[in-house]
Amino acid sequence: MADTQEIKQTLWEKMDDSPYVMVGLTGDGQHSEPLTAQLDRDQVDTLYFFVGKDNRLAGGGAAMAQFVSKGHDFFACLSGTITQDNDRAMIDKLWNKQVEAWFPEGKEDPNLALVRLDIDSAELWETDISLSGRLKMLVGGTITASESSSHAKVDTTAA
């Protein structure tokens, strides 16, 4: 079972490997949508997203993001606030070919908006079933918490 620091570090490693999340504003009755998180190693507790100015997230507000790792062995629910952050230096820093595919006029596209999710809290789960837990699964035994996974509720995702 991983400690809190390890599970927070694992979050960023898993997101670096597969930065796809479902993001939605809370309390507005709309569904979440899939987006690619742009990670900036210099910013703790922050995810960036390139969206259209007409996107439901562009107006900002309280939000939640859900993440499932590529191997389905790590899960996260991130709560925070979305705001528009059209800082030119940050757009230049985060811009890449994948983003360019969505904005035909590039960084000068009039519909381009950079939004940021400032994470206030998170709940993290890592399914790291131990060898003894796997054996118990094969024979129908009961798996204890220490054999099954790691879980943490945190106010910061900083490792």
Results as ranks from 00 to 15, higher is better:
D120I: 03
G61S: 05
D85T: 13
G27V: 09
T4S: 13
D3L: 03
K53M: 06
A2E: 13
D73L: 11
A89I: 10
M90L: 15
L114N: 01
D17I: 11
S79M: 13
S69H: 02
S130H: 03
A2P: 00
G24W: 08
I82D: 00
G24C: 12
E6H: 03
G71W: 02
E123A: 04
D3G: 10
T157S: 08
G106D: 06
S130M: 05
E13M: 11
S132L: 12
V139L: 10
M22K: 07
D118C: 04
K97P: 05
K53V: 14
Q30D: 08
G80A: 11
A58Q: 06
G27C: 09
S69M: 08
D128I: 11
L78F: 12
D28Y: 04
D85W: 06
D17T: 14
I91L: 10
D92Y: 01
K153T: 13
D17K: 14
L35E: 06
K136I: 11
W12H: 12
H31I: 14
M1C: 11
R88D: 11
V154S: 02
A63L: 13
T127D: 04
K153G: 04
L47T: 12
S32W: 00
F49N: 03
D40I: 11
F67M: 06
G71Y: 03
F75I: 07
S18Y: 14
V51P: 01
G52I: 05
E13S: 10
S121H: 05
E105G: 03
T4M: 10
D73I: 12
Q43D: 14
K8Y: 04
